[in-house]
């Protein structure tokens, strides 16, 4: 268990990259946008996806850190499974923290009627009508999903080198090609299907995202189990 604590400690020592830098970037984007919008106000309510920057940033950091921290952890003779579990625990903590911060900003955004200019940048349009706890759950799942996706893609590179990533990309492309082809030609009631998805979007989300998270976690664990450092 000491290995898991060490990995958590490594992520803690990386708090600048996990927390400070992404929130500084988000803050800067917010301030620039706020300044610009304050001078170019129109009567319409606006809603953008300004918070996407933090999701993309954390996904990228997860991808980079997994490789770098694994090489270091391996040098310290930390068990591979301890590395995986420590990293996933860090991902959960970072997701919870980031979601809480985002929720705090959303609450302020709502209380100030969109920062005084009816501008909603931290909340997504589709989730604005949801209860706060539901929004928190959605952000938490999306953060976790993206961080694990970064870990998973990095584990493909560690285990199978860049060629593995290429194969994965091709397989993913074929998968979506088959799915899209099937949905166009295969379903007699295609329209009804998409209508149902539209009506039960939240149910689909709550079922699909945890399933993807579990799948990513499983594959990440599987690939890292026999991962080696090639330096």
């Amino acid at each position: 268990m000491k290995g898991i604590r060490s990995v958590l400690y490594m992520h803690w020592r990386s708090v600048g990259s996990w927390v400070y830098i992404p929130w500084l970037i988000l803050g800067s984007v917010f301030l620039i946008n706020y300044g610009w919008r304050s001078f170019h106000q129109d009567s319409q309510s606006t809603n953008d996806v300004g918070n996407m920057v933090i999701f993309i940033y954390l996904f990228t950091v997860a991808w980079i850190f997994n490789g770098q921290l694994f090489a270091f952890a391996s040098g310290l003779s930390i068990k591979r499974m301890h590395f995986v579990l420590g990293s996933v625990m860090a991902a959960i903590l970072i997701s919870i923290g980031s979601s809480l911060l985002l929720m705090l900003l959303i609450v302020v955004e709502n209380m100030t009627n969109g920062w005084g200019i009816d501008w909603h940048t931290f909340s997504w349009k589709v989730t604005q009508t949801f209860a706060y706890w539901e929004q928190f759950a959605i952000y938490l799942l999306v953060f976790l999903c993206l961080i694990l996706l970064g870990f998973f893609l990095s584990s493909i590179v560690i285990r199978f080198r860049k060629r593995g990533l290429l194969v994965f990309g091709v397989l993913l492309y074929v998968f979506f090609l088959v799915i899209s082809n099937t949905s166009v030609n295969g379903f007699d009631h295609e329209e009804a299907f998409w209508t149902w998805i539209g009506q039960h979007g939240l149910l689909v989300f709550y079922s699909l995202i945890p399933a993807i998270i579990l799948l990513l976690f499983g594959c990440y664990m599987l690939f890292m189990r026999r991962a080696i450092i090639r330096s």
Binding site: G3, S14, S77, K79, H82, S231
Partner: peptide, 22 residues
């Protein structure tokens, strides 16, 4: 993957890489 052994082992190699931000 044997914690009892690995926790007692330190491997210092010239090719060791460290996280860029550490």
């Amino acid at each position: 993957e044997n914690e009892a052994i690995l926790s007692q082992l330190c491997f210092v190699k010239e090719s060791q890489t460290y996280p860029d931000h550490f």
